[in-house]
């Protein structure tokens, strides 16, 4: 049992899975000798060798396709994109080739696609994006968004053992986030024994009675901060971390709406075309009579993500925006 950073959790999951299963290997740019842009695989190549920790040429579509080829033979590739934004290079490989392969009866594609995404201070339009809306409409893919070290480790293990292509979102902002600065609920102890976290099960971070706040990714931090502020004002907020976006825990959303009657959906990606639209639609279809207020959503503005701090701050969903939305809902 112990406390580790989110980055260490990902690194440990990879290491332990590679020790456990010789068919697991890594492709990525600069991951071998250099340990990767974020040092997730530092020391891996020395231990596992150049054949399992492979420095690939700068050609994302090429090595994504190659990983799919290896997966077709039964190997279990884990591929690292240096930044999530660059996954657009490999879009057809993932969406057209990997995702539909099993449906076309051509066998499973056990592939993990690691995407370090979301905003980090002033990383600009090509190093800050949230890629999940691009993939959400593609059957055959799974999309995972862990926010705690516990989930990051347990869900990466689940992803590696899964027989489908899994888009594993990881959050640069959380990599080295000091463990002692995190709210207690976001730092569960990591078991020393092997463990996994199943896909499709949301986690309630905070029980509440008045308003429900459903979120995933880095915005769990704003959600918890906002819930603290509302509590001082006498409003009790239930906070749910979805953790898994495809499949997602529909029952958890419906349950909390039945309990509080008021729903705010929050994510860092743009509100327009964001996953929150699907969640809201499901509630409208299946829990309409439990709603006591219009469903609210908070996400980034409908613009490309800008670099300069005042612009970036205006683009991102801030704690203040979440507080404002919760207050409005509570007062409705």
């Amino acid at each position: 049992m112990g406390q580790i950073t989110y980055r260490q959790a990902i690194s440990e999951a990879l290491w332990e899975e590679m020790e456990r299963d010789k068919e697991v290997f890594l492709y990525g740019e600069d991951i071998g000798l250099g340990g990767g842009a974020f040092y997730i695989t530092k020391g891996f190549q020395e231990h596992f060798g150049r054949d399992r920790v492979v420095d690939v040429p700068l050609s994302e579509a090429g090595w994504t396709g190659a990983a799919i080829g290896a997966a077709l033979t039964g190997m279990r590739p884990v591929i690292e994109f240096q930044f999530a934004d660059f996954v657009t290079e490999s879009f057809k490989m993932i969406v057209d080739l990997a995702a539909g392969n099993h449906f076309r009866q051509m066998g499973p594609v056990p592939l993990v696609i690691r995407l370090p995404g979301a905003a980090l201070v002033s990383a600009g339009p090509f190093h800050s994006q949230n890629p999940e809306p691009w993939f959400f409409g593609t059957p055959g893919l799974k999309i995972i968004a862990p926010t705690t070290a516990y989930d990051a480790k347990g869900m990466l293990k689940t992803a590696i053992r899964d027989n489908n292509p899994v888009i594993y979102l990881e959050y640069k902002k959380l990599y080295n986030y000091p463990v002692n600065e995190l709210p207690d609920i976001l730092r569960p102890d990591i078991p020393s024994d092997d463990y996994t976290v199943p896909f499709g099960e949301a986690r309630t971070l905070r029980e509440g009675e008045d308003v429900s706040l459903v979120t995933f990714g880095t915005t769990v931090l704003q959600a918890l901060e906002a819930a603290d502020i509302l509590e001082e004002e006498g409003v009790s907020t239930e906070v749910i971390d979805m953790r898994s976006i495809l499949p997602y825990d529909k029952e958890a959303i419906l349950r909390t709406v039945e309990k509080t009657g008021k729903l705010l959906i929050l994510h860092e990606a743009r509100k327009h075309g964001g996953i929150s639209g699907e969640f809201a639609a499901v509630v409208a279809e299946e829990a309409f009579e439990h709603l006591d207020a219009p469903i609210q959503r908070v996400g980034a503005t409908n613009t490309p993500i800008p670099l300069s701090p005042p612009l970036e701050n205006a683009y991102l969903p801030s704690t203040q925006k979440v507080v404002d939305a919760l207050r409005e809902l509570a007062a409705y």
Partner: peptide, 21 residues
């Protein structure tokens, strides 16, 4: 293997199969 219509995509796939071999 089954190809996808996006011409060229199977070249990396063949390379990946060879990589596994």
């Amino acid at each position: 293997t089954q190809l996808i219509s996006h011409i060229g995509s199977m070249i990396p796939v063949a390379a990946g199969i060879a990589w596994a071999e």
